[in-house]
């Protein structure tokens, strides 16, 4: 706020003051008051008015300029109220009070949603725990009856996979849900995923070449297992019918970072789609033409990687290969 803007805002009061002064001058002259007296009175009045205007201007300028500055600087703009001193003029006080009250109301409103989301997340965790019991019974029953039908087992595994997707979606979306980042064996976490996909892997006839040395990375190993499972099941889903399937899992070091690479010789991803595969609900060419896809798997993978602080990249050439790389931050970063 500068003085010009301030005056423009006060133009009615100023105009009235000028009119009043001119009227006064005319009135005094009509009664024969000498010019010296008229000028003196006018000057005194004008100086008093000017000082009053200036004081009011300075107070307002300091308050509103601070407000604007803080708004610029603040990351969370709704906190601006907390950073201001109580202003010394009435509009400022009213404004601050109103800001404070609307803020409070909004916080309460947000809290309702936050609580309901967190309750939903708790329920999802509980529900997943519950639903795994009948799944366990079913799997045991199948096994005890001699595994006569492998197709039934495959469907069971599919249900289990879908349930895990729900669980990890809920975990990825809820910042409050905790995870444990600790030194974990890369090999162990990935092996867990590979074992879960054994039936699919054997049915597809794909050859798996896993060469992971005993590297440990800072991650939540359960999350990493889920991430690996999603990536690998995509590889299995989009194998090329033209050649025998091959999936390679390996790791290497780059600038002190550990890179975990999943590579397959499947149908690949077209260059148009490649940039968007980690977007929510993106199915792309492959998802539409071949197997049905929900477009959620890789989105969850991306979200989990972001939460864990891992980088995630995809490279692919259509009809040749797909390569997904996860980068783990330098270990020292987390060390205490």
């Amino acid at each position: 706020m500068n003085f010009k803007e301030f005056l423009a805002d006060k133009k009615l009061s100023c105009a009235l003051a000028v009119i009043a002064l001119l009227t006064d001058i005319c009135f005094m002259r009509a009664y024969g008051v000498p010019w010296e007296v008229v000028l003196f009175c006018t000057a005194v009045l004008m100086i008093a008015l000017f000082i009053a205007l200036m004081v009011s201007f300075l107070k307002k300028r300091s308050f509103y300029n601070t407000l604007n500055e803080r708004l610029e600087q603040l990351d969370k703009k709704y906190l601006v109220c907390e950073t201001l001193d109580t202003p010394a003029f009435i509009e400022g006080k009213i404004l601050c009070n109103a800001l404070y009250r609307t803020n409070k109301a909004m916080c309460e409103e947000i809290d309702i949603y936050r609580r309901s989301i967190s309750e939903l997340a708790d329920f999802v965790e509980l529900w997943v725990h519950e639903i795994k019991l009948p799944l366990s019974s079913l799997e045991l029953m199948l096994y005890n009856s001699g595994y006569t039908d492998k197709r039934a087992l495959k469907q069971l595994r599919r249900i289990d996979g879908c349930i895990d997707t729900v669980l990890y979606y809920s975990r990825a979306e809820n910042a409050e849900k905790d995870y444990i980042i600790k030194n974990a064996s890369l090999r162990g976490a990935v092996a867990e995923a590979v074992k879960k996909l054994r039936e699919d892997m054997l049915l597809s006839g794909a050859e798996l070449d896993m060469e992971l040395s005993d590297v440990s990375v800072m991650t939540d190993s359960k999350w990493l297992t889920f991430i690996s499972e999603q990536i690998l099941s995509n590889s299995l889903k989009y194998l090329s019918p033209k050649r025998p399937g091959k999936i390679k899992i390996y790791c290497n070091e780059q600038d002190g970072r550990t890179l975990l690479v999943f590579e397959d010789n499947g149908i690949g991803i077209s260059s148009n789609d490649l940039a968007r595969i980690f977007e929510k609900s993106f199915t792309g060419e492959n998802g539409r033409t071949g197997q049905r896809s929900t477009g959620m798997g890789l989105y969850i993978v991306k979200t989990l990687c972001v939460r864990l602080g891992h980088s995630l990249n995809a490279q692919s050439v259509k009809d040749e290969y797909t390569r997904i790389t996860i980068g783990f931050a330098k270990n020292d970063f987390y060390k205490f």
Partner: peptide, 14 residues
């Protein structure tokens, strides 16, 4: 046999 192999990190096919 397959289970035993896979559980010992030998991911071989049929």
């Amino acid at each position: 046999l397959m289970t035993a192999l896979w559980d010992n990190d030998e991911y071989i096919n049929d």
